[in-house]
Simulated assay, not measured.
Amino acid sequence: MENKLIETCTSLIKNAKNIVVLTGAGISTESGIKDFRSRSGVYQLAPEYILSLDYFYRNPREFYQFAFENLYHPDAVPNVGHKILEKWEKDGKVSHIITQNIDGLHQKAGNKNVIEFHGTIKTATCLHCGKSYSTEEMENRLETIDEFYICYHCDTSDKRERFIKPDVVLFGDTGKWFTVEGFDAILHMIDVADCVLVLGTSLKVTPFSTFPQYRRKGIPLIIINIGETPYDTERNTYVIQESIGKTLTLLDQKLGI
């Protein structure tokens, strides 16, 4: 790891008082959770379309079985990267974490200001009445009820209207933050940030990938990610292609906070 680059990033973080962090699957791989697009990722096990709204409607049982096996990790624990972000938030450095991850590890680590842009795998909701179910409850329903994915708390003539959908944003889907108000809130956070820190995402999936471009002119962008991103060669951008845990540990030690 280049010493000069580390020193520069340490200085940028030290002087910052309002860091917005964007995280992707790469921060959770160090907790044993598979990413999506690497050679050992989830998409090597099954086609991407399985995580689509259309597939969910056509094959709800198969969708849930895939999700339970590949997306739900109740025993996963936060790694050192998550814990350092919690420390930086507590110290007043990090103002918000905007994550693509659905695993809830940022909250498990103790972070308070977390936006789960792609939702959460911890709960599911009836598309008709809005009744919420825990994922543990959905696992139990799968084992005991034939049409476990249909809500019986309400009633309609069309069962599909009562499908219980995991609270994750699928392809062809929209989520809580996919609204004018949601986008405006996020873009405001980035606009007032004095540093944007990207961890473990290739920044290739829209609209999440567009967020760094909304930072103010001259505001530094620090990217810690094993692979390349579309922003790597931009001005005021500092790229470290190393382990997130290892890099954040080194930065935290040099910060001395």
Rank of each mutant, 00 (worst) to 15 (best):
residue 127 L to K: 15
residue 182 G to E: 04
residue 187 L to T: 01
residue 32 G to V: 00
residue 139 E to C: 15
residue 213 Q to W: 07
residue 107 Q to K: 13
residue 132 S to D: 06
residue 16 A to G: 08
residue 14 K to I: 01
residue 249 T to D: 08
residue 51 L to P: 02
residue 19 I to L: 07
residue 69 E to I: 07
residue 180 V to M: 09
residue 14 K to Q: 12
residue 79 N to F: 05
residue 86 E to W: 02
residue 9 C to Q: 04
residue 175 G to W: 00
residue 204 K to F: 05
residue 143 E to A: 08
residue 39 R to A: 05
residue 235 R to N: 09
residue 226 I to V: 07
residue 211 F to I: 10
residue 133 Y to S: 02
residue 160 R to T: 12
residue 90 K to M: 15
residue 100 Q to A: 13
residue 57 Y to C: 03
residue 67 A to D: 01
residue 225 N to P: 06
residue 192 V to Q: 07
residue 229 T to E: 06
residue 39 R to K: 07
residue 148 F to H: 02
residue 206 T to F: 06
residue 231 Y to F: 07
residue 235 R to D: 13
residue 185 A to F: 05
residue 223 I to C: 04
residue 147 E to N: 13
residue 116 E to N: 14
residue 55 Y to S: 00
residue 28 S to R: 09
residue 65 Q to A: 07
residue 203 L to Y: 09
residue 76 A to C: 13
residue 253 Q to F: 05
residue 167 D to L: 15
residue 6 I to H: 04
residue 219 I to M: 15
residue 1 M to N: 06
residue 158 D to S: 12
residue 113 N to I: 12
residue 154 C to S: 10
residue 223 I to R: 11
residue 98 I to Y: 04
residue 156 T to K: 09
residue 254 K to Q: 15
residue 159 K to D: 13
residue 58 R to N: 14
residue 110 G to K: 00
residue 56 F to H: 01
residue 222 I to P: 01
residue 8 T to Y: 11
residue 255 L to C: 05
residue 21 V to C: 06
residue 126 C to E: 05
residue 176 K to I: 14
residue 141 R to G: 05
residue 38 S to D: 01
residue 20 V to G: 10
residue 146 D to S: 03
residue 200 G to M: 11
residue 94 V to E: 01
residue 215 R to L: 12
residue 93 K to F: 00
residue 51 L to S: 02
residue 179 T to C: 14
residue 191 D to L: 10
residue 195 C to K: 13
residue 31 S to K: 02
residue 227 G to S: 08
residue 65 Q to L: 13
residue 73 H to K: 15
residue 95 S to C: 09
residue 178 F to R: 12
residue 224 I to K: 00
residue 120 T to D: 13
residue 176 K to L: 12
residue 79 N to A: 07
residue 36 F to S: 00
residue 15 N to G: 06
residue 248 L to E: 03
residue 182 G to S: 12
residue 18 N to S: 10
residue 119 G to E: 01
residue 92 G to S: 08
residue 241 Q to S: 14
residue 221 L to H: 03
residue 126 C to Q: 09
residue 230 P to K: 03
residue 76 A to W: 03
residue 109 A to E: 01
residue 82 H to R: 09
residue 66 F to V: 01
residue 141 R to C: 05
residue 228 E to C: 03
residue 59 N to S: 14
residue 249 T to E: 10
residue 53 L to Y: 09
residue 106 H to F: 11
